[in-house]
């Protein structure tokens, strides 16, 4: 392995069309089996970071390296194969399909049926809900349960890094607690996670490394606990009161 990190975004500059740049020299590194949490206000460019990492948005400059291999400029399918699995913001299960069909779709790019069966066993043990509700329509599940199905689907490719975009969005506190526990379980099972959250305080409580995104760059980084304990930081970025994220709409 050429590097200590599974995912490295270096000096990324990215934006949409002719509009001003959203990311201006951003650097993010994700070490193995850790939860790296990127926090920042609404519109700071958190989703944009993940879109760059999964190939949905090609950066204007900068480098993307996955497990030592340079994948800059590659598209979503290639980055999926390289080991990056993206769970989009908002609800993205296929509501009219069963939980089983949803999860199996996650393994679409995997050719070897034995490998698929292995992953299925793993995913079912990690998310018992998936096995319990295998034949139920995904749209009939609660929001938190749908997120779990999405997590399970994203793990089917045996990704090196899972990219999670605001998994707690629109969930009540109880469901949020379950979802963050699931993220921790994913990490404990050996998957690195790049987590993006507006619900900063709650997310940092579950994370290993914290990063604060502001004005297109990472301003502060450090162990998540340290960020949480920093009073000045709390006041500036973590907000005394929770923001209402449920009303935010997903771009594009």
């Amino acid at each position: 392995m050429a590097s200590d990190y599974l995912l490295e975004l270096t000096d990324i500059e990215a934006g949409y069309g002719r509009a001003a740049l959203v990311l201006r020299g951003l650097t993010v590194q994700v070490p193995p089996a850790q939860i790296v949490c990127l926090v920042g206000p609404n519109g700071a460019g958190k989703s944009t970071v993940l879109k760059v990492a999964s190939g949905m948005l090609v950066p204007r400059s900068g480098r993307i390296v996955v497990d030592g291999a340079d994948v800059t400029g590659k598209g979503p399918q290639q980055l999926l194969r390289a080991g990056l699995s993206h769970v989009l913001q908002g609800h993205s299960v296929f509501k009219e399909m069963t939980v089983g069909e949803n999860v199996n779709l996650g393994a679409f790019s995997v050719r070897d049926p034995r490998h698929v069966a292995e992953r299925l066993d793993f995913v079912k043990s990690l998310f018992p809900l998936v096995a319990d509700r295998w034949d139920a329509l995904a749209g009939a599940l609660s929001g938190g349960q749908q997120k779990q199905v999405e997590f399970a689907r994203s793990l089917m490719v045996d990704p090196k890094v899972v990219l999670l975009d605001e998994p707690s969005m629109g969930l009540d506190p109880k469901a949020t607690a379950i979802i963050f526990e699931q993220v921790v379980r994913m990490r404990d099972a050996g998957t690195a996670v790049l987590l993006v959250e507006q619900n900063a305080r709650r997310a940092l409580e579950s994370a290993d490394v914290g990063l604060v995104l502001d004005l297109g760059r990472v301003h502060i980084s450090g162990p998540a606990r340290q960020l949480l304990d920093d009073p000045k930081l709390g006041e500036l970025y973590l907000g005394g009161r929770p923001r209402t994220s449920a009303t935010e709409r997903q771009p594009s």
Binding site: P76, Q77, L80, R81, H86, L88, S92, F94, L105, G106
Partner: peptide, 9 residues
Amino acid sequence: DEDKAQSLG
């Protein structure tokens, strides 16, 4: 959802 389908490969 065609876009979502594409993102799954």
